[in-house]
Design a protein around this nucleic acid. Structure first.
Length: 542
DNA sequence: GCGTCTCGCGCG
DNA sequence: AAAGCGCGCGAGACGC
């Protein structure tokens, strides 16, 4: 049922099968095979539907994919260790609160498929012992089924992360260049020169401020020039500038917008990150404490809408884009079992909140919900809180309780058992919470309360998204296989997925995305009367 | 000159 | 209309 793979110092691989005897997990004999025999091991294990156990998916899986292999299920010991060590659901177990060790190492950099001569590092120490400790922590937990689901979803997520990088996002460099040229003007022949359509804005800015040598890219210089022109500003942020009355504002905001596009996603970005028609960001599971993923390389987490048009399906293929509508408030509804909010969410959640009479407009409903989940105290969000509390007492009580725990240095957990770090500690367990006078909650602790308030919602939403993606991956494989001509995930961003698919089967892919969302809701929340609708669009360009 | 911090802004 | 969560990145500012 499990097969542990351990890479040894000489690059051979130890293979250990683990089976269950009278409910006890026991390790069979260790077989050592040369690296070159690993593909055969994988093929044989996949036939038996084994679950591969390894130290770090990012060390193992890129090479397997490069060799044309695919793995259905795994246990990523490093990721699971990170969950179990912090989880409140493992309290009392040896893993709970264990000191920082080799299993807390950051994710291994993915191996380039073509770097065939790089020496593979040996596995993290005592993988078998670590796996048995993890199984013990899960199986003795009072919340075993939730931890089983979370650790399986986390590990499947790691497989998806490596597979998405392997396939890459189809990216049209020509289309990207057209988009840039439309907005900025043609690419300057000399690197470092500003494109033509920025020079107009630059000249207008300099003229309006009577500062012929101004470099608006320097906030310090810009703020001095704005003050000299009689504008009382404390920063050069867009939202502070945009409501000022001065001839410089319009060209300055235009300039800043273009500068941002040029610097973050301009031609140098294209050259750095797009190869052979594919953009391959590295995904980092659980980069955020809440379990949300991060990315590294190319800023895939922040692809501006302005350049998404450069994501273009291959000829004869399509992109099926799905996003979960209003995911976080729906997760809060299900977590808190707030009946009134569940009724409001039968259609568009924000319209439903308006219909409940709590607020007057959809925009207010949205601001109020975000304010509740983020801990707004001022502005429209803060102002609307009392009305939201009256209309949806259970939902609001849940986030308020999470905030109180954080304000007093405590730990909160997601539905499936990912627990928040303690304040003042990156690693999460190694420092005591700051001294907290009786009844006194200072600004720092109030900020931590906003973090724990949001943690339960954002973290549980991340769990839903992992389950959604895992269910989608499974159904895609079941229906279409995993060949190079089969539909496959190419992008994931918190509550949004993109599948690249032969156009002929796009409608079927869209249906699978919707049923996977329903399945994710059932996995987490059983029969709770909360819908998780997804908006699906089939396009040739994202 | 180099590493680190801060700002500003893109995304959810 | 602006203030409240989670990220990554580039450029400039700053400290050594």
């Amino acid at each position: 049922m499990f097969t542990l793979l351990v890479r040894r110092a000489d690059e051979s691989v130890a293979v250990i099968r683990l089976t269950r005897d009278d409910g006890r997990l026991t390790a069979g004999p260790q077989r050592v095979v040369p690296s070159a025999a690993l593909p055969d091991e994988i093929r044989a294990g996949e036939k038996d539907s084994t679950r591969w156990v390894w130290d770090d998916t990012f060390r193992w899986y890129p090479r397997l994919l490069a060799a044309g292999l695919r793995v259905e299920r795994c246990v990523d010991l490093r990721l699971v260790h990170g969950i179990l060590r912090r989880s409140e659901f493992t309290a009392g177990n040896a893993l709970h609160g264990a000191p920082v060790g080799p299993w807390d190492a950051p994710q291994a950099a993915p191996t380039e498929a073509d770097a065939l001569f790089v020496v593979e590092p040996e596995s993290l120490p005592d993988a078998l012992g670590e796996f048995l400790r993890q199984r013990d922590a899960v199986e003795t937990s009072a919340q075993r089924s939730r931890l089983e689901l979370l650790t399986a979803a986390e590990s499947t997520g790691a497989l998806v992360a490596v597979e998405m990088r392997h396939r890459g996002i189809p990216w049209s460099a020509a289309r990207h260049d057209e988009l840039l040229t439309d907005v900025l003007g043609p690419r300057p022949s000399r690197a470092g020169d500003r494109p033509a359509r920025m020079l107009d804005d630059l000249a207008a800015v300099r003229a309006a401020l009577r500062a012929p040598d101004l470099n608006p890219d320097s906030p310090a210089e810009l703020i001095r020039a704005l003050r000299t022109a009689g504008l009382t500003v404390t920063s050069t942020r867009q939202w502070e500038l945009q409501h000022l009355e001065h001839p410089v504002i319009e060209p300055l905001l235009r300039y800043k917008k273009k500068q941002r596009l040029l610097v973050a996603n301009g031609w140098s970005w294209l050259e750095a990150w797009v190869r052979d028609g594919r953009f391959r960001p590295e995904y980092v599971p659980a980069a955020a404490a809440t379990g949300r993923w991060g990315t590294s390389g190319g800023g895939a987490l922040q692809l501006p809408r302005a350049v998404r048009g450069a994501v273009v399906a291959d000829p004869g293929w399509a992109l099926v884009v799905a996003d979960a509508s209003q995911l976080e408030p729906r997760v809060l509804t299900a977590l808190s079992q707030d009946g009134a909010m569940a009724r409001a969410g039968e259609g568009d959640l924000y319209e439903g909140i308006v219909a409940s009479g709590a607020v007057a407009t959809r925009a207010e409903a949205k601001v109020a919900m975000l304010g509740a989940m983020y801990g707004a105290t001022q502005g429209d969000g803060g102002r609307l809180m009392p009305r939201l509390t009256r209309a949806f007492p259970r939902a609001i009580a849940l986030v308020e309780a999470a905030a109180r725990v954080g304000e007093h240095g405590g730990v909160v957990s997601t539905l499936l058992g990912r627990s928040s770090p303690r304040p003042g500690s990156d690693a999460g367990f190694d420092e005591r919470p700051p001294e907290d006078g009786p009844g006194q909650v200072d600004g720092g602790m109030r900020a931590w309360g906003r973090f724990t308030r949001n943690f339960v919602v954002q973290g549980t939403a991340a769990e839903w998204a992992l389950c959604w993606m895992g269910a989608l991956r499974r159904s895609l494989t079941a229906e279409f296989g995993a060949g190079s001509d089969a539909p496959h995930l190419v992008f994931f961003l918190h509550d949004e997925v993109v599948v690249h698919t032969p156009a002929s089967v796009a409608p079927r892919v869209a249906a699978l995305m919707e049923s996977a969302a329903t399945e994710a809701g059932r996995l987490l929340f059983g029969d709770a009367p909360v819908r998780f609708p997804v908006t699906v669009a089939t396009v040739t360009s994202y």
